[in-house]
Each structure stands twice: as C-alpha cells, then as structure tokens.
C-alpha cells in the first residue's frame, strides 16, 4: 500500500517543461528521497504535491483520494527558502503556524514549549524573530514544521545552509519521526544524505523521473558490475584491460565497472597478481553518487561534469 501516489505530474512554465509526466509512489512508513540536480524539477514537484502549484496534468493521490486541504493539514512542510515574520515573537509564530493547520489550544502551546525547551529556545520564546540568530531561526522553522504532529513531513533541500549542529538536529528529528511511523519526504542534491537516510528514492533529471525504487534494490541492481576499491599504488594498467568498462576516481575510493557481472572476482585476482596493496575491495557496492553521475552526469551525452553535486 502506498501512502502517496504521484501520477503523471506535469508542469509547464511558458515553454519550459519543469516537470514532465513524473510518476512515483511513496510507501508507508518510509523516508523517501527526491534527488536530482539543482533545477531538475524537485521543488516544482514538491510544490505540486503540496497543492501550492496546480499541475497542468496528473494527480497526487493520498491513500486513494486526490489531495486537497485534508492533506495540507496533515503535512509539515519546510520549504527550501525559509522565511518567518520578523516582527512576530517566537512562541506567537509557532502557535500561528499550528493554528493555520487547524491546531490550537493548550495542548499545542504545551508542545511548543516542550520543543522550545528541547532546542534551547525556551528563554527566547518572547523575543522577536528578528532578534534570533540564523541558526536559532532554523530551529524555529523545524519546530513549526512538526509542531502540529503531521502525518507527512516534506522537506525541500532541508540540509542546505544548516550548520553541523542543526544538521544533526534535523537528522535526529527525521529519524525520530520515522520511528513514530511518520512518512518523510525530502529532496536533496546531496547524495550523501540521501544514501544514509532514505529507504526509497526517485531520481529526477530535466523534469523526468530517471530512476525510482528502494535504495537497497537500486544499489544491488547497479552494484552488480561495480566495485568500490580503496588501494595504494598505481592501477592505471587496468585502463586497457578488456574486462574493465570504466574507471572513475572519487578521491578516497575508485569506482570500477566491469563488463560482466561475474567478472568482479577476476578483477580482484588481477589486482592481487599485480601486487597492488588493497585496503578495501567492495564488490556489489556502488554509491548513490556514482549512480547519479552515471545516470544524470552527462549533459548531451558527452560526459560533461555535473556541477553542484
């Protein structure tokens, strides 16, 4: 059973097709990653899922029902470009956002104070937002996203612009929400985070879905012919070897793709025979980063570098 189904979603801005017939499914109880480069169509997709943009074509379906206000009430949304009313007070702001979600009263106030204490903001609850540091404003924004205890949490590029402390804080929130059975959807261009946190992903490029499925499934599918190697010494001799299709240097590790799935053992033998000191040889392992580069890294097929990845 899927919690959320995105069906054939399309959005055009004048001549630009921002999202092109995108379809994917978000399973219950998962952390779902929407990954792609900047400008790939992630934010537009999310805005359509949030009913902020109306799609030109397609639907977003929540457990069998087309989304509407009901869904909005169940979502906590953290947009990529975050904003708060500068002149409003901290607690006042949080309560206002909860009220817009239909939650008001003592219970919410109590929860808000609880979160403020947990995030070390309780002393500032009567300060104006503009008097808070940027880091504290980000914390406020997290609280406002989850204060009304939403079923779904949608985060658009949640880690951009966060300091390490807040990055960890947000990670904790996400994992905690997952444990409580919430569905978390986030978009990112940072493959690292997606790889560490997501259960399921879709990859979007130029408005089109180019890959979707569970992270484990995708990795095993793409990993069969891939080896992640950490080594010392020179391995340039592999370049001309017939079993090797491609070598890519990622700095700390090297990604090697063989031509057939059963050739990974042959590759290991080759390296051992040549006396290359091997620190780590990980067959059947491929990073999301590598998959991403392989699928989306080539502009017009001539191997141009991907920026901002």
């Amino acid at each position: 059973m899927y919690a959320l189904e995105v069906k054939d979603l399309t959005k055009r801005f004048n001549s630009l097709v921002a999202v092109d017939h995108a379809s994917f499914e978000v399973p219950e109880g998962s952390i779902f990653g929407l990954i792609g480069r900047n400008g790939a169509g992630k934010t537009t997709t999310i805005r359509m899922m949030m009913n902020i943009y109306l799609p030109d074509e397609g639907d977003v379906v929540l457990r069998g029902v087309k989304i509407g206000q009901e869904f909005k009430n169940q979502v906590g949304y953290l947009p990529e470009e975050r904003g708060l009313y500068k002149k409003m007070k901290v607690l006042e702001t949080l309560l206002y956002f909860a009220e817009l979600k239909g939650k008001s009263g003592k219970e919410v106030q109590k929860n808000a104070e609880k979160y403020l204490k947990r995030f070390d903001l309780f002393d500032r609850r009567l300060s104006k937002v503009e008097d808070l540091s940027k880091g504290n404003q980000q914390k406020m924004q997290f609280i406002s996203t989850i204060l009304h205890d939403p079923e779904f949490i949608i985060l658009d590029e949640p880690f951009s612009g966060l300091d390490p402390v807040n990055t960890n804080l947000l990670k904790d929130i996400i994992l905690e929400m997952k444990q409580r059975g919430k569905i978390i959807i986030f978009s990112t261009h940072l493959m690292d985070f997606a790889e560490k946190m997501c259960d399921h992903i879709v990859m979007i490029d130029h408005g089109k879905i180019i890959l979707k499925g569970s992270l484990a499934g995708i990795k095993s599918k793409y990993g069969q012919r891939n080896v992640s190697l950490t080594h010392a010494g020179d391995i340039s001799f592999l370049k001309d070897n017939p079993i090797v299709e491609k070598i890519e240097d990622f700095g700390n590790s090297t990604g090697i793709k063989v031509k057939e799935a059963n050739q990974t053992q042959q590759l290991l033998k080759l390296l051992v025979d040549r006396g290359v000191p091997i620190k780590k040889f990980d067959a059947n392992e491929i990073s999301l980063h590598e998959i991403f580069i392989e699928l989306a890294g080539r502009e017009d097929g001539n191997g141009k570098e991907v920026r901002n990845v």
Binding site: I52, Y77, G83, Y85, L100, K101, I154
Partner: peptide, 17 residues
C-alpha cells in the same frame, strides 16, 4: 511584499490556499 520577499508565503501556502 514582505511575505513574498521573506519567502514566508511558501510556508503559509503549505497550510492555506
């Protein structure tokens, strides 16, 4: 203009039309 330029409008539109 304040709501628009401070980007707060997107947060609000996630709750209301």
């Amino acid at each position: 203009i304040e709501e628009k330029s401070s980007k707060i409008v997107e947060v609000i539109l996630s709750s209301v039309s």
